[in-house]
Amino acid sequence: MKRKLQALSLLVIVGLVSRPADEAVTLSLRTSGMLSRPVDLGLREGLGQMGFAASLGGLRSLVASITYLQAFTAFENIDWAKVDSLFQLTTRLQPGYATYWVEGSWHMAYNAASGYLFDDKLRPAIRRQLARDHVQRGIEILDEGLKFLPDDPQLWVTLGAIYERRGLDPLHDRWVELDPKKAGECYLRGHKNGALQVYERLGAYQLVKAGDPASLRTALEVLRRNYGMGYRTPGLIHYLKLAEEQLDIPSAQRIPDADPTPGGAR
Protein backbone atom coordinates (compact mmCIF):
# COMPACT_ATOMS: atom_id res chain seq x y z
CA MET A 1 0.00 0.00 0.00
CA LYS A 2 2.86 2.28 0.89
CA ARG A 3 4.45 1.68 -2.51
CA LYS A 4 1.17 2.39 -4.27
CA LEU A 5 0.90 5.72 -2.50
CA GLN A 6 4.48 6.48 -3.44
CA ALA A 7 3.69 5.57 -7.05
CA LEU A 8 0.66 7.85 -7.07
CA SER A 9 2.63 10.69 -5.52
CA LEU A 10 5.41 10.26 -8.07
CA LEU A 11 2.89 10.25 -10.93
CA VAL A 12 1.47 13.53 -9.60
CA ILE A 13 4.98 14.99 -9.35
CA VAL A 14 5.79 13.91 -12.95
CA GLY A 15 2.60 15.61 -14.13
CA LEU A 16 3.26 18.80 -12.16
CA VAL A 17 6.87 19.00 -13.36
CA SER A 18 6.06 18.19 -16.96
CA ARG A 19 3.25 20.76 -17.38
CA PRO A 20 5.37 23.94 -17.25
CA ALA A 21 8.13 22.15 -19.18
CA ASP A 22 5.62 21.14 -21.87
CA GLU A 23 4.31 24.68 -22.15
CA ALA A 24 7.82 26.13 -22.39
CA VAL A 25 8.92 23.61 -25.04
CA THR A 26 5.68 24.10 -26.99
CA LEU A 27 6.21 27.86 -26.98
CA SER A 28 9.83 27.48 -28.03
CA LEU A 29 8.95 25.11 -30.88
CA ARG A 30 6.13 27.37 -32.05
CA THR A 31 8.46 30.37 -32.03
CA SER A 32 10.99 28.51 -34.14
CA GLY A 33 8.21 27.55 -36.58
CA MET A 34 8.44 23.81 -35.88
CA LEU A 35 5.08 23.37 -34.21
CA SER A 36 1.70 24.52 -35.51
CA ARG A 37 -1.19 25.73 -33.45
CA PRO A 38 -3.78 23.06 -32.53
CA VAL A 39 -6.42 22.14 -35.10
CA ASP A 40 -9.45 24.42 -35.06
CA LEU A 41 -12.40 22.71 -33.39
CA GLY A 42 -14.66 23.97 -36.17
CA LEU A 43 -12.99 21.53 -38.56
CA ARG A 44 -14.62 18.59 -36.82
CA GLU A 45 -17.79 18.84 -38.92
CA GLY A 46 -15.95 18.97 -42.22
CA LEU A 47 -13.45 16.24 -41.45
CA GLY A 48 -15.70 13.81 -39.62
CA GLN A 49 -14.75 12.21 -36.32
CA MET A 50 -12.08 9.91 -37.82
CA GLY A 51 -10.42 12.63 -39.83
CA PHE A 52 -10.47 14.97 -36.86
CA ALA A 53 -8.98 12.31 -34.56
CA ALA A 54 -6.30 11.54 -37.15
CA SER A 55 -5.46 15.21 -37.55
CA LEU A 56 -5.14 15.42 -33.77
CA GLY A 57 -2.95 12.34 -33.64
CA GLY A 58 -0.03 13.86 -35.52
CA LEU A 59 -1.43 13.00 -38.96
CA ARG A 60 -2.64 16.48 -39.85
CA SER A 61 -0.43 16.72 -42.91
CA LEU A 62 -1.70 13.38 -44.18
CA VAL A 63 -5.34 14.38 -43.60
CA ALA A 64 -4.66 17.64 -45.48
CA SER A 65 -3.24 15.65 -48.39
CA ILE A 66 -6.35 13.45 -48.43
CA THR A 67 -8.72 16.44 -48.49
CA TYR A 68 -6.51 17.94 -51.22
CA LEU A 69 -6.91 14.76 -53.30
CA GLN A 70 -10.67 14.85 -52.70
CA ALA A 71 -10.66 18.46 -53.96
CA PHE A 72 -8.77 17.31 -57.05
CA THR A 73 -11.44 14.66 -57.69
CA ALA A 74 -14.17 17.30 -57.23
CA PHE A 75 -12.31 19.48 -59.76
CA GLU A 76 -12.32 16.59 -62.25
CA ASN A 77 -16.08 16.23 -61.66
CA ILE A 78 -16.51 20.02 -62.14
CA ASP A 79 -18.11 20.44 -58.72
CA TRP A 80 -16.88 23.93 -57.87
CA ALA A 81 -18.71 24.28 -54.56
CA LYS A 82 -17.11 21.08 -53.33
CA VAL A 83 -13.69 22.16 -54.60
CA ASP A 84 -14.04 25.37 -52.62
CA SER A 85 -15.20 23.70 -49.39
CA LEU A 86 -12.50 21.01 -49.58
CA PHE A 87 -9.80 23.59 -50.17
CA GLN A 88 -11.15 25.53 -47.19
CA LEU A 89 -10.64 22.41 -45.09
CA THR A 90 -7.19 21.78 -46.55
CA THR A 91 -5.97 25.31 -45.99
CA ARG A 92 -7.36 25.41 -42.46
CA LEU A 93 -5.57 22.16 -41.66
CA GLN A 94 -2.26 23.49 -42.96
CA PRO A 95 -2.50 27.27 -43.17
CA GLY A 96 1.28 27.56 -43.28
CA TYR A 97 1.59 25.73 -46.60
CA ALA A 98 1.38 28.31 -49.40
CA THR A 99 0.71 25.87 -52.25
CA TYR A 100 -2.74 25.02 -50.87
CA TRP A 101 -3.79 28.69 -50.83
CA VAL A 102 -2.40 29.20 -54.33
CA GLU A 103 -4.14 26.15 -55.79
CA GLY A 104 -7.41 26.94 -54.02
CA SER A 105 -7.46 30.46 -55.43
CA TRP A 106 -6.38 29.22 -58.88
CA HIS A 107 -9.32 26.79 -58.99
CA MET A 108 -11.76 29.55 -58.08
CA ALA A 109 -10.39 32.54 -60.02
CA TYR A 110 -9.43 30.67 -63.18
CA ASN A 111 -11.11 27.27 -63.48
CA ALA A 112 -14.44 27.93 -61.80
CA ALA A 113 -14.76 31.48 -63.16
CA SER A 114 -14.04 30.36 -66.74
CA GLY A 115 -16.21 27.27 -66.28
CA TYR A 116 -19.21 29.42 -65.39
CA LEU A 117 -18.47 32.08 -68.00
CA PHE A 118 -18.61 29.54 -70.83
CA ASP A 119 -21.44 27.42 -69.43
CA ASP A 120 -24.10 27.53 -72.16
CA LYS A 121 -26.75 26.19 -69.82
CA LEU A 122 -26.79 29.42 -67.83
CA ARG A 123 -28.21 32.80 -68.80
CA PRO A 124 -25.52 35.31 -69.84
CA ALA A 125 -26.14 37.67 -66.91
CA ILE A 126 -25.84 34.82 -64.41
CA ARG A 127 -22.74 33.48 -66.14
CA ARG A 128 -20.97 36.83 -65.85
CA GLN A 129 -22.07 37.27 -62.26
CA LEU A 130 -20.85 33.80 -61.26
CA ALA A 131 -17.55 34.32 -63.07
CA ARG A 132 -16.99 37.63 -61.30
CA ASP A 133 -17.94 36.12 -57.93
CA HIS A 134 -15.45 33.31 -58.37
CA VAL A 135 -12.61 35.65 -59.33
CA GLN A 136 -13.42 37.54 -56.15
CA ARG A 137 -13.43 34.26 -54.22
CA GLY A 138 -9.94 33.54 -55.56
CA ILE A 139 -8.78 36.93 -54.30
CA GLU A 140 -10.38 36.31 -50.90
CA ILE A 141 -8.60 32.96 -50.56
CA LEU A 142 -5.24 34.62 -51.18
CA ASP A 143 -6.05 37.52 -48.82
CA GLU A 144 -6.84 34.94 -46.14
CA GLY A 145 -3.61 33.08 -46.89
CA LEU A 146 -1.62 36.28 -46.59
CA LYS A 147 -2.85 36.68 -43.02
CA PHE A 148 -0.96 33.48 -42.18
CA LEU A 149 1.96 33.97 -44.59
CA PRO A 150 2.39 37.72 -45.05
CA ASP A 151 5.86 37.36 -46.57
CA ASP A 152 5.23 34.50 -48.96
CA PRO A 153 6.32 35.46 -52.50
CA GLN A 154 4.19 32.75 -54.13
CA LEU A 155 0.99 34.19 -52.65
CA TRP A 156 1.84 37.76 -53.64
CA VAL A 157 2.66 36.94 -57.27
CA THR A 158 -0.46 34.77 -57.60
CA LEU A 159 -2.57 37.63 -56.27
CA GLY A 160 -0.80 39.99 -58.67
CA ALA A 161 -1.59 37.67 -61.58
CA ILE A 162 -5.30 37.59 -60.67
CA TYR A 163 -5.48 41.38 -60.48
CA GLU A 164 -3.65 41.55 -63.80
CA ARG A 165 -5.60 38.97 -65.77
CA ARG A 166 -8.94 38.14 -64.21
CA GLY A 167 -11.16 41.16 -64.74
CA LEU A 168 -14.36 40.82 -66.77
CA ASP A 169 -15.49 43.31 -69.37
CA PRO A 170 -19.17 43.78 -68.46
CA LEU A 171 -20.26 44.42 -72.05
CA HIS A 172 -18.43 41.55 -73.67
CA ASP A 173 -17.68 38.05 -72.40
CA ARG A 174 -13.94 38.59 -72.31
CA TRP A 175 -11.32 39.16 -69.68
CA VAL A 176 -9.71 42.55 -69.29
CA GLU A 177 -7.09 43.81 -66.89
CA LEU A 178 -8.77 44.25 -63.55
CA ASP A 179 -6.58 46.43 -61.42
CA PRO A 180 -3.07 47.13 -62.75
CA LYS A 181 -2.11 49.25 -59.75
CA LYS A 182 -2.90 46.45 -57.28
CA ALA A 183 -1.34 43.90 -59.63
CA GLY A 184 1.86 45.95 -59.80
CA GLU A 185 2.04 46.38 -56.05
CA CYS A 186 1.50 42.66 -55.46
CA TYR A 187 4.21 41.67 -57.97
CA LEU A 188 6.67 44.10 -56.41
CA ARG A 189 5.85 42.82 -52.92
CA GLY A 190 6.39 39.27 -54.17
CA HIS A 191 9.76 40.18 -55.62
CA LYS A 192 10.74 41.97 -52.42
CA ASN A 193 10.03 38.74 -50.52
CA GLY A 194 12.11 36.55 -52.81
CA ALA A 195 10.16 35.92 -56.03
CA LEU A 196 12.04 35.77 -59.34
CA GLN A 197 13.49 38.97 -60.87
CA VAL A 198 10.94 38.83 -63.68
CA TYR A 199 8.17 39.72 -61.20
CA GLU A 200 9.79 43.04 -60.42
CA ARG A 201 9.63 43.92 -64.12
CA LEU A 202 6.04 42.62 -64.41
CA GLY A 203 5.12 44.79 -61.42
CA ALA A 204 6.62 47.83 -63.05
CA TYR A 205 4.75 47.16 -66.33
CA GLN A 206 1.48 47.07 -64.37
CA LEU A 207 2.30 50.32 -62.59
CA VAL A 208 2.96 51.98 -65.95
CA LYS A 209 -0.47 50.76 -67.08
CA ALA A 210 -2.00 52.19 -63.89
CA GLY A 211 -0.78 55.58 -65.09
CA ASP A 212 -0.94 57.70 -61.92
CA PRO A 213 2.19 59.80 -61.20
CA ALA A 214 3.24 57.90 -58.06
CA SER A 215 2.96 54.52 -59.80
CA LEU A 216 4.79 55.85 -62.85
CA ARG A 217 7.67 57.14 -60.74
CA THR A 218 8.02 53.79 -58.93
CA ALA A 219 7.85 51.95 -62.26
CA LEU A 220 10.45 54.24 -63.82
CA GLU A 221 12.86 53.62 -60.95
CA VAL A 222 12.40 49.83 -61.16
CA LEU A 223 12.66 49.70 -64.94
CA ARG A 224 15.76 51.89 -65.05
CA ARG A 225 17.43 49.69 -62.44
CA ASN A 226 16.56 46.53 -64.41
CA TYR A 227 17.76 48.20 -67.60
CA GLY A 228 21.05 48.96 -65.84
CA MET A 229 21.28 45.33 -64.74
CA GLY A 230 21.27 44.29 -68.40
CA TYR A 231 17.62 43.27 -68.80
CA ARG A 232 16.76 44.88 -72.15
CA THR A 233 13.81 42.85 -73.27
CA PRO A 234 11.25 44.33 -75.69
CA GLY A 235 8.69 44.52 -72.86
CA LEU A 236 11.01 46.42 -70.56
CA ILE A 237 12.04 48.92 -73.25
CA HIS A 238 8.44 49.47 -74.31
CA TYR A 239 7.21 50.21 -70.78
CA LEU A 240 10.29 52.21 -69.86
CA LYS A 241 9.78 54.47 -72.83
CA LEU A 242 6.10 54.75 -72.00
CA ALA A 243 6.89 55.76 -68.43
CA GLU A 244 9.49 58.32 -69.58
CA GLU A 245 6.98 59.78 -71.99
CA GLN A 246 4.16 60.01 -69.46
CA LEU A 247 6.41 61.59 -66.84
CA ASP A 248 7.89 64.04 -69.38
CA ILE A 249 11.45 62.98 -68.69
CA PRO A 250 13.91 65.23 -70.59
CA SER A 251 15.27 63.64 -73.75
CA ALA A 252 18.83 63.64 -72.48
CA GLN A 253 17.82 61.45 -69.52
CA ARG A 254 15.86 58.93 -71.59
CA ILE A 255 17.22 55.58 -72.72
CA PRO A 256 18.53 55.43 -76.29
CA ASP A 257 16.48 53.88 -79.08
CA ALA A 258 18.65 50.78 -79.27
CA ASP A 259 17.60 47.30 -80.39
CA PRO A 260 16.39 45.21 -77.51
CA THR A 261 18.31 42.07 -76.67
CA PRO A 262 16.65 38.94 -78.01
CA GLY A 263 15.15 36.41 -75.65
CA GLY A 264 11.49 36.91 -74.82
CA ALA A 265 9.10 39.77 -74.46
CA ARG A 266 9.29 40.07 -70.66
Binding site: S18, R19, T26, L29, G33, M34, G58, R60, S61, Y97
Partner: peptide, 25 residues
Protein backbone atom coordinates in the same frame (compact mmCIF):
# COMPACT_ATOMS: atom_id res chain seq x y z
CA UNK B 1 -2.09 20.10 -14.19
CA UNK B 2 -4.75 17.41 -13.75
CA UNK B 3 -4.59 16.71 -17.48
CA UNK B 4 -0.79 16.58 -17.39
CA UNK B 5 -0.93 14.05 -14.54
CA UNK B 6 -3.32 11.81 -16.46
CA UNK B 7 -1.47 11.77 -19.79
CA UNK B 8 1.68 13.10 -21.47
CA UNK B 9 1.57 16.01 -23.92
CA UNK B 10 2.38 14.18 -27.16
CA UNK B 11 1.74 17.25 -29.29
CA UNK B 12 5.23 18.46 -28.34
CA UNK B 13 6.69 15.83 -30.67
CA UNK B 14 4.52 16.74 -33.69
CA UNK B 15 7.18 18.61 -35.63
CA UNK B 16 6.84 16.25 -38.60
CA UNK B 17 4.06 18.34 -40.15
CA UNK B 18 6.32 21.36 -40.50
CA UNK B 19 9.34 19.31 -41.51
CA UNK B 20 7.28 17.95 -44.41
CA UNK B 21 6.55 21.55 -45.45
CA UNK B 22 10.30 22.23 -45.53
CA UNK B 23 11.08 23.61 -42.05
CA UNK B 24 14.51 22.85 -40.56
CA UNK B 25 14.68 22.08 -36.83
Amino acid sequence: SALAIICPDLGVFDIVENIIKGAQP
